[in-house]
Design a protein around this nucleic acid. Sequence first.
DNA 1: AGTAGTGTACTTGTATACTAGAATATCTTT
DNA 2: AAAGATATTCTAGTATACAAGTACACTACT
Lengths: 234, 234
Amino acid sequence: MKINTKHARESARDYALRVLKENILSLDLVPGSAISENELAAQLGISRTPVREAIIELSKAYLIETYPQRGSFISLIDPKMVGEARFLRRITDTAVIETACDEADEEGIRQLEENVTLQEFYLSKGITDKIFDLDNQFHKAIYDIAGKDIIYEIHSTLMLHFDRVRTLSVETVKDFKVVGDHRKMLEAIKARDKVTAVELVNKHLNRYQIDEKEIRSQRPEYFKAEGGNRGEES
Amino acid sequence: MKINTKHARESARDYALRVLKENILSLDLVPGSAISENELAAQLGISRTPVREAIIELSKAYLIETYPQRGSFISLIDPKMVGEARFLRRITDTAVIETACDEADEEGIRQLEENVTLQEFYLSKGITDKIFDLDNQFHKAIYDIAGKDIIYEIHSTLMLHFDRVRTLSVETVKDFKVVGDHRKMLEAIKARDKVTAVELVNKHLNRYQIDEKEIRSQRPEYFKAEGGNRGEES
DNA sequence: AGTAGTGTACTTGTATACTAGAATATCTTT
DNA sequence: AAAGATATTCTAGTATACAAGTACACTACT
């Protein structure tokens, strides 16, 4: 588990939450592994209370499973959860990009331009680390343009189910067609072409679905059994 | 504030969370009013810790606003929040009812039938208290049929922004056309008629938008200033 | 050797103590 | 009387103590 330092005005709870999210996303916290409130508190140099509060929040998003008096565990990648997250992302992204086509002003488009330019720059240089963050920022910018920033934030934790798979996708597939997708989306928004924009979003999200099958065969131990007895253990 | 008794195997945290949600929904906790962790803990007969954990969860959903060392307050009804919640509900409900048209089996339809029959029964008897719960159960049943139960649960707390307005709607408008909407939705699902189903959902949700303006004029003190300086206070 | 039983070392859930800061009332000073 | 300083009393944030239950290893007995 990788532990970054605590920011200046960051509360202990936000610190614990940030570290946990980062490590779940990067899979440094391996799906299925146990996490101890006491141990994590010691590692972060804070007390159990804020650590516990962070764990509770992630439990609400099904990223951690807590069993009273037994322990807390990083959730396995659950195809049903990933599927629901993708479903939700698909319908929300498409509706939001339609709104963005209507609402986009010069400033919004400039921000998207800057972002995509950077993605293309880093891709050409082979610095792929940055693209993941830029990808998220690109989508957040579209939500901001559409005036749906709360929805983005509410969904962001849930989308970690999805983003975790993307992390593996980047590791294994090394496919950056997504940057081209973003360029095309931007052009569609500039042209206020809703039909094309929605098509692009759907195509964009289909990429990850294809990846998932490949990843699953490579790392079966990270995944929950498909269609198996959900939540039950012997 | 109305305080129901604690259930048998319910944790202190879940108890606090349930009581808070019930009172926010019913507006017995008035928008803008202060809530004290200590006071609430005393009223519920539990300690501050689980109360605090419940408050944190509701803060994450913007139903409570917490200012460190100053206090926590029930959020005013924020037109932007309600708007985003309605937007999210509209796109999610429409996508889910389409899926439900495809996936509905006999058992699912039977459950919807039972629910709508009860709604019609209570409406004819004038027992309108029950209809609110049945309404929610009806929509949850559609999500279950579509295999999107996690999405329903994730959104349920956020939808309190919306449901709060519905509470006022029931109080002031006394309009139960919604029961007829539900009957028609059920028939559309039985006929697997996606186009009609989606139309009905949109029409259904439009009702609340109309109500909101009327309510706002009656209870302006519950609402945040529209388009005003968001989040700022003098 | 095998098995029942017990103790120990964990876990999370809850309660309480302490810290730091904000708001307000009161007292002092001008 | 008015204004400024100060003490008190709130608040939430964090740390720690205690309670209850699980899992497992070890012991003792058959």
